[in-house]
Amino acid sequence: MSAAIVRMSSVSKQFGSQRVLAGLDWQIAPGQVVGLLGRNGAGKSTLLECMLGLREADGGSVSLFGEDVAALSDAARGRIGYVPQRTDLFDWLTPVQMFDYFRALYPRWNQAKVDGLLARWGFGPTLLGKPIKRMSGGEQQRLAIIRALAHEPELLILDEPVSALDPVGRREFLRELVDQVIERGTTVVFSTHILSDLERVAFDLAFLKDGRIALQGQTDALLEGARRIVVPATTLPGTPLAGELRRRQEGAMTSVIVQLPGDDAMRLAREPGVRVEPLTLEDLFIEVTQ
């Protein structure tokens, strides 16, 4: 594997007494498309902001393209695209004025791409002359996405990019992501609660829990490897099974979530009264992040 584009080691971040990132380690390789999952308030936005150097971490180190994020060169900055969760910057401008402003900042700005996206996403002349702050949440979010794609970044960070879009808008966005971004080998980190979108486009997943990456891997492998084993509590050994993520008492039964069951789990599965079930991504989300 080639050198990581994003490298975070022992990153910690605290707000008052609340510890949001607790010695987090994470590496992302070039061309990876990673979905970042975690519960509300788990710190996904804080993690992405620390990754980009928009927020200073209390401890640990972050590097992007091999450069320390605190002293990132303009060249490296120009290779990054970011869609924040909320975009209220420059909202007194019209889209035309906003894009003119940003075009001057980026040497690699692709105006043809901007014009194409604006046309495909329904920005006609009237809308293009309207101040951004008077637009709907969905329209504002689309503009933020177009702005992040316009300079053809090599690293694209999307923080809940589709939260304000309806299903049609989300599908259009995913198609654009597949056709214009993933096909070009762009590295993408994508946080969202819409698991069906992640299943479609995220080849890899990472779960954030208790300030660390609690589980990561290829989406397919995580789904195929995950099993819920429901065992009469008396049959279950007290020591954890190989690959055990979680166990929970449910009356006389114990439910154990295992990633990549080993021989011990397979032996257990043959005992009377034991049930083994596959998990969906939603099951896995609940079991890993709760």
Partner: peptide
């Protein structure tokens, strides 16, 4: 691969696999 990825909004790597 590209056509399927585009039509179904899937990661092309999934289709290639």
């Amino acid at each position: 691969v590209r056509e399927i990825a585009q039509a179904l909004a899937l990661n092309p790597m999934t289709v290639s696999k």
